[in-house]
Design a protein around this nucleic acid. Structure first.
Lengths: 220, 220
DNA sequence: TGGGTTAAACTGTGATCACAGAATCATGTA
DNA sequence: TACATGATTCTGTGATCACAGTTTAACCCA
């Protein structure tokens, strides 16, 4: 198995953590599809490790509900119902909104610069119809913002939400034909951060999180 | 090892999940102290199982930052700094506040009744100086509220926050002599829920979450 | 008696095996 | 031909062993 689009989640002192980080990133960027089944032995062979690290990684992802694991049945990627997805985006709006508020007070010039570059990367990814790259850059964008809070607990919670909504988003993106309203928000978020307008940053980020829900509604 | 004060987290189809649930509850109610060290083999013997389920449970708790696990070093209970604890209570305030808002719209008469009973239990636990029981009932109280949201993702996130702040709270409680301001909030929360006053419920729950931080400040 | 060095005990980690339940597919029967 | 039933394959799970790094304790030397 080729490793996920980009490691980036790089700590990983042991094999379990490596496998975990790789699978999680694949979930985030939509390289694993809803209802897809994951086998310990198969993944072990693909990663070139024993079953041990893989089973721990899968169990860990399942414990965060990023995967579904029933007794003696194969792990599989959750196939979210619209209501479940809405629940997740709801939490994301709350947490990221609060994070943006704090971030607006801590943001530095280099952060702004980095975010601006990501907006460009996201644009090109979209033009190339590269859904994986698109979701990856989107994740990096938000990730940078909430990392500015210095609240690592908040960070890991939001990340797990991206892992859970990733497969669902990727599915939605490839299904949909017309999405062009998304890009408008990110530059606005950057502007709010630059002006240290915490309230506006919060509002914009909350709206951005709601985009995932709207994406689905547009289909039905 | 005697099992945690009360299972209550009861699904557990496999041994790993049982050990995980038991250890997590012990963290929540403060039966594990900050900086305490946990050994896979020791726990395995105490639980009467092999090392396998225990190591998976410990890894899982470590992945949620409920425990600290460095490579080839013993797992241990985090000894939070005031700033780290404040970060956790901050998230709890956000999530539980939002949860209370939704709960206020879904609350039923039997929920109110249950919560009122818990307030009494909490009172007696306090009079008995039973910190474990006190924290357990407190957890049950909040747990009932955010379970009313029907958002299971929100639920598990909040629970992990209790697991992380539990040891710290227990430590704070046993250290402190005078705490009597806490009880006033819970009846008020019940009142807000009964009146379906979402905004007030949110405000009160947020304040209640801040209590943990105040608890520490009172010491220094 | 104090400090540094070495050895023993303990730690998580990875791999491998045996097992029981779930899913799948083929086979034989009505 | 359709359906039920069987066997085969695949699933996670628990246990056990070997290994390397960490910690602890003892011991020896100054």
């Amino acid at each position: 198995m080729d490793t996920a689009a980009q490691p980036d989640t790089a700590p990983a002192e042991n094999l379990s953590a490596k496998v975990y980080a790789d699978l999680k990133m694949k979930l985030i960027v939509g390289q694993l599809r809803p209802a897809e089944t994951l086998s310990i032995r198969t993944l072990a062979e693909e990663y070139g490790v024993s079953a041990m690290p893989v089973r721990e990684a899968l169990r860990q992802l399942a414990s965060e509900d990023s995967l579904i694991g029933a007794a003696k049945k194969a792990y599989r990627v959750p196939d979210l119902t619209p209501s479940e997805a809405a629940n997740l985006f709801f939490i994301r709006a709350i947490l990221e909104g609060a994070a943006a508020e704090i971030a607006a007070e801590n943001v530095r010039a280099k952060d702004i610069k980095f975010l601006e570059k990501l907006v460009q990367d996201m644009d090109t990814a979209w033009q190339n119809q590269d859904a994986v790259q698109f979701l990856l850059v989107n994740f990096k964008f938000h990730s940078r913002i909430y990392s500015l809070t210095g609240n690592s607990a908040l960070q890991s919670m939001i990340e797990s939400l991206y892992a859970r909504t990733g497969p669902w988003l990727a599915h939605g993106i490839t299904e949909l034909v017309t999405i062009d309203s998304w890009m408008g928000d990110h530059p606005a978020i950057i502007g709010a951060l630059r002006n240290r307008d915490a309230a506006l940053a919060r509002k914009l980020v909350e709206e951005d999180a709601r985009w995932g829900v709207d994406l689905y509604r547009a289909r039905s």
